[in-house]
């Protein structure tokens, strides 16, 4: 399925109304992350029809409903206390200690990752942008450091179960016009340094994602498989 610019408003409306077939809906949900015009059209369609929902009289909900919600909430890391989750750092809250903890905030400072000694390799260059990639549940899965000189480090922070004859592939979206570009594949689902493409200098809020592709990578130079993790870059400061 290829989305022509002229079709975007109609597709966005039908998406919001729930009229798309399952495959079309899945396509829109994936495309929405990289297609700014589509995202805007969906946001607008949502607002247009929202009064049909907000005009509805509220019903009395079961008294137990909030308890059912709150008992199932996973903890979220608190950005104001980035190192509290780490017992060693918490016990030794001294800036000058041997700990080299770097807090990276991703997506509007929502998720903060404390990175300790495991990632203290020396580098001659600093990355231009860093993207923290999360899965659908909002759990941190990987970090991409893009150096802007056609080199990026991809750090996996969880074990990915990659089926036989499949490969993890890293992508970025330099611009809507350019579309998603491959940074390379991760052999054996391990952290890696990827090199050798030629792309514009990475920018703040640029999208990075990892998808599951057929062995050796997507044959069509576009992501085709499910998204394992994604996130927006922040300029390294």
């Amino acid at each position: 399925m290829k989305l022509e610019p002229n079709d975007i408003p109609a597709v966005a409306d039908e998406y919001v109304l729930g009229l798309l077939e399952e495959a079309e809906r899945a396509y829109v949900e994936a495309e929405i992350e990289r297609n700014v015009a589509l995202r805007r059209a969906v946001d607008e369609a949502r607002e247009r029809f929202l009064p049909l929902d907000t005009g509805l009289a509220p019903v009395d909900v079961s008294p137990s409903l909030w308890d059912a919600v709150s008992s199932r909430l996973p903890d979220r890391p608190k950005p104001s206390l980035p190192v509290a989750a780490n017992p060693v750092s918490a016990a030794n809250n001294n800036q000058g200690s041997g700990w080299r903890a770097a807090a990276i905030s991703a997506m509007a400072a929502s998720v903060v990752l404390a990175i300790g000694l495991t990632w203290s390799m020396t580098r001659s260059l600093d990355p231009l942008v860093i993207a923290v990639l999360m899965n659908e549940a909002g759990e941190v899965q990987a970090v991409v450091e893009d150096y802007g000189n056609d080199t990026a480090n991809v750090r996996l922070l969880t074990d990915f179960a990659v089926p036989a004859h499949k490969t993890m592939q890293v992508w970025t979206l330099p611009s809507a016009e350019m579309g998603p570009m491959s940074l390379g594949v991760l052999d054996q689902a391990r952290s890696a340094k990827l090199q050798g493409w030629s792309l514009p200098t990475p920018e703040d809020a640029q999208l990075y994602e990892i998808t599951l592709e057929d062995e050796g990578g997507s044959p069509i130079q576009r992501p085709t498989g499910p998204i394992l993790a994604k996130g927006f870059a922040k300029l390294a400061r």
Binding site: D53, L56, P58
Partner: peptide, 9 residues
Amino acid sequence: AGRLVAVAQ
């Protein structure tokens, strides 16, 4: 929540 339940219902 009350209105959201009504929407879903």
